[in-house]
Write a protein that binds this DNA or RNA. Structure first.
Length: 350
DNA sequence: AAGACGGGGGG
DNA sequence: CCCCCAGTCTT
């Protein structure tokens, strides 16, 4: 049997029942695909339902404020996905009269829609013959064909893209695409794939050569850098000083506590002596460590965060333009990174 | 071509 | 601790 037929037969017997597999609505499929970028199904599922409930169609999505979309996205990570989705939704309303496109060539022009997502939406919603190549597909192909070209090199990407196109079932591209990804997720897993019971075991090159656990090959990225975040807990009555993050760094447009970053971990005594603290809060301020340092790991950074309570005489306004007092009861309406809302939940509840 | 961008789960 | 996850964008 052909590769695609084996995969599809396997899929029909083993597929999970996932909500986005019951629709051909390109908007709904796009929603699911962006949520699932670099994200496990179990983690993305509640967000998929949440977004579908709040924004049942692309018109409502486009009409929502970015802050609200970010709030619903809170905790999912890679927040540029949410910001780009908003831009894409507005573009669909403006350029396609609110009719979500199904063609690869249209989809690929939308913000946040790359080759994978465009192929996924086009093939699932309109059965367009475009092969998806995600982490699952890379792994399945690398193993089945015994390819040791790194999947994240330019050469490797080209190689796997071409291979995926050759293997694509041209009659049922949507079904095949679903199938090969599901096969990678359930059968040809990264660790401990169940090769003994695999329908492709007789033709799998990696298995024949005992190289399954060495494939796919991936070039390692750069090591993470360490950063030291000193967050200040500044209250005034029933209000808390908050900061909206800008561009050019992590957590763009999300809210956090007032932050002073230092080149290394300082204790509160040393912190109290530095110029920036004096500029922001006045000289000789009384600092109390409330929590931390806690380590918070991002994809390319290790954050070491301390939370420091401080009593200020005067209202802090204008020293840092983006610092503003927010009513405690309204904190829930602000999109915050996990590090921040975890702290707030633990220490700011009455 | 290489880095940056979150957060969670598993070994 | 390291790797991986239904990737994309920027430099």
């Amino acid at each position: 049997m052909a590769f695609s037929d084996e995969i599809i037969t396997w899929y029909n017997q083993h597929k999970r029942d996932l909500p986005w597999r019951h629709t051909r609505n390109p908007y709904v499929i796009w929603l699911s695909e962006v949520i699932l970028q670099q994200t496990r199904v179990e983690q993305g599922l509640p967000y998929f339902y949440r977004f579908l409930t709040h924004y049942p169609d692309v018109i409502s999505f486009a009409g929502a404020p970015e802050e609200e979309i970010l709030l619903h996205w809170q905790g999912l990570g890679y927040y540029s996905r949410a910001r780009n989705m908003h831009k894409a939704a507005k573009a669909v309303v403006a350029e396609y009269d609110g009719i979500f496109p199904k063609k690869y060539e249209d989809l690929i022009r939308l913000k946040g829609v790359g080759e994978y997502t465009a192929a996924a939406v086009a093939s699932f919603a309109a059965n367009e013959a475009k092969a998806v190549v995600d982490g699952n597909v890379f792994r399945v192909l690398a193993r089945y064909f015994g390819i040791d070209e790194p999947i994240n090199s330019s050469k490797g990407k080209k190689l796997f893209l071409g291979l995926a196109d050759d293997l694509l079932d041209k009659v049922n591209p949507g079904l095949y695409n679903q199938a090969v990804m599901e096969f990678g997720a359930i059968q040809c897993k990264p660790k401990h794939p169940d090769c003994a019971n695999c329908v492709l075991r007789l033709d799998c090159r990696a298995l024949a050569e005992r190289r399954v656990n060495q494939l796919p090959v991936k070039i390692k990225g750069k090591a993470s850098r360490n950063r030291y975040f000193n967050y200040f807990v500044v209250t005034m009555g029933d209000r808390l000083l908050m900061n909206k993050r800008g561009t050019g760094d992590i957590w763009e447009n999300l809210y956090e506590l007032p932050l002073i970053e230092t080149p290394y971990l300082m204790d509160v005594r040393e912190l109290a002596s530095i110029q920036e603290v004096a500029e922001c809060f006045g000289k000789g301020a009384d600092l109390r460590l409330v929590a931390g340092p806690v380590k918070h790991v991002l994809s390319h950074q290790n954050l070491f965060a301390q939370f420091i309570a401080i009593d200020v005489q005067d209202e802090i306004i204008g020293k840092k333009m983006k610092w503003n007092y927010v009513f405690m009861k309204d904190l829930g309406t602000l999109a915050k990174p996990k590090l921040i809302y975890s702290f707030l939940e633990e220490y700011m509840v009455e």
